[in-house]
Design a protein around this nucleic acid. Sequence first.
RNA 1: GCCAGUGUAGCUCAGUUGGCCAGAGCAGCUGAUUUGUAAUCAGCUGGUCGGGGGUUCGAAUCCCUCCACUGGCUCCA
Length: 645
Amino acid sequence: MVKITFPDGAVREYRPGITAMEIAEGISRGLAKKVLAATVNGQVWDAVRPIYNDSTLKLLTWEEAEGKSTFWHSSAHLMAEAVESQFPGVKFWVGPPVENGFYYDMDLGDRKLSEEDLAAIEKKMNELAKQNNPYVRKEISKAEAIRYFEDKGDEYKLDLLQNLEDGNITFYTQGAFTDLCRGPHIPQTGLIRAIKLTNIAGAYWKGDEKNKQLTRIYGITFPNQKELDEYLHMLEEAKKRDHRKLGKELGIFTFDDDIGPGLPLWMPNGAIIIEELEKLAKDTEEQAGYKRVVTPHIAKENLYLTSGHLPYYQDSMYPPMELDGVKYYLKAMNCPHHHKIFAAEPRSYKDLPYRLAEYGTCYRYEQSGELFGLMRVRCLHMNDAHIYCTREQFYEEFKSVNEMYLKYFKIFGIEKYVMRLSLHDPSKLGKKYVDEPALWKETEALVRDVLVRTNTPFVEVQDEAAFYGPKIDVQIWSTIGREFTLATNQVDFAQGRRFKLEFTTKENTSETPLIIHRAPLGTHERFIGFLLEHYAGNFPVWLAPLQVKILPISDKYMDYAQNVLESLKKADIRAAIDDRPEKIGRKIRDTEMAKVPYMLIVGEKEKQEHQLSVRKHGHGDMGTKAVAAFIEEVIAEIKNRASEQ
RNA sequence: GCCAGUGUAGCUCAGUUGGCCAGAGCAGCUGAUUUGUAAUCAGCUGGUCGGGGGUUCGAAUCCCUCCACUGGCUCCA
């Protein structure tokens, strides 16, 4: 007998060779219908694959993330079967599940896919699903596997096989389609009841743009139509809070063909938000001992040769303009300029940590296909600063930068983010990364140490560091699911030496400082793009371009409305009067849609009693208040930068 | 940059087997209405149908090309 341990700790005995599906059937018929796969000793396992050893078992259904990914992985195989039946001779690369669905990369030769092809494939998938074919697992020798794909003339699968160990190779077959695959898969195709192929894209083989571009089809599937409908509805809802849509509706920013791609024009409402963010940054940085500087938008080529940016970064910079035989570049980063300020005067250890801050304007020639609303642009304003410090000071400095992030995130109510410890890839030393193995090791340990000692949750990722050192990136997601680095905190052990930056130590020797590059509020462009989606356009009062709108019941109360407006303006509250000859219902509706935080309705009653009828955006009628009391409350809300709407 | 798609008024969208002066709603403007918690009524204005070239008696509609945008790939704050 084999002992099976369940997640709740219960242990039961079964005959050897029992399957997860049989165990589920023993528990309940309903459960068995829902089982997609299992984990056996922590390893994902087909529901119909026999178990011969004592094991811990967890049944996976649609409710579990691993259940979903198994379902989508099997869906990718189903799609491949449909594609192969439509386009014989197609060669497949890989077809994994992703966060929302799955894709399969394939080489279709010279054939191009159209939307109609997609519809036809989807139709075929539905037919094949109805056949309810089982996914059959087969262990196979490497030699046999190679022979199979040689016969098929499939160089892609042969490439995959190269890296696999003999004795560890499995094929899965459903219907007429057999694929090299480690599995697991759902029991049969009939479980896939709702199918939507979402788009066709090109994808470079092995993710390298030097390689051939394969055709990638994305899709998503569900165990029933209702869930698919819900998913599509959710996508529609997400589009409504897309910053590109909200930004236009709220008059935050715009683009113009004559200005250029990726070059946003900030409209008056957007400029107010920028002002508020800069006020926050300036207050915070002043208190934290930063000094503000201002630097030019261009610099000579030589600066970037010294910094070392040019070889790593040139493709992302606007091409230079040449004046009197000297090349000038638009700056893509502020650090070299700041280093020159550090170098302008002799520095003592007493000056350190020396912190220079600037909302620097940078220009980056991002590839045309990369531009994305405000989130990825070619002109950006960075909440930049550079901290020059000793090794002994590094821990405290880096830690206080991290604390600054968390303080900001609290103000904005940002909760869904991931701190990513971005490390170098040793195999790319001297190419993508400065060739200083020992310094990499040392600084990576320093950064990890800060995260560990401050109990900050984080993930470690290889090959994401800056060329000059490791960093912590704060990753967020746009409403349509794209991932971005919102903020970054970086160590730089390379540029100090390149610029020959030095300070005099207590012992009267010279030493090169460590440098921290940091941008807790990222760039105005990405940060405001993110905030638009984060708040769905409903900015807290302190950020709202228009904070209060006064709505007179009729023209008769314009005098009183003017009076109230004067009081609000004296209190530095951004306010305006809706002076259109419209009915009050109309004024309320329009102001609600403009997402103005407060509405003040004034008519006969309010005028007589020197009161206001207060309406809060999204909350409705809040009752009446004295003018002075309302002003006092709003000022407090603004001053606290209250995030709660 | 590469793959696929989209481009009609400020916004949302009609209009294609090529054929009456290219339409609607909202927004805007003008006038009337003076209004109590999410749309008052009427009239008017507004489009080189993304740009350029071609096919045709005739092009928003078909072809070529460029541009911009969208979804991916690669790259990044």
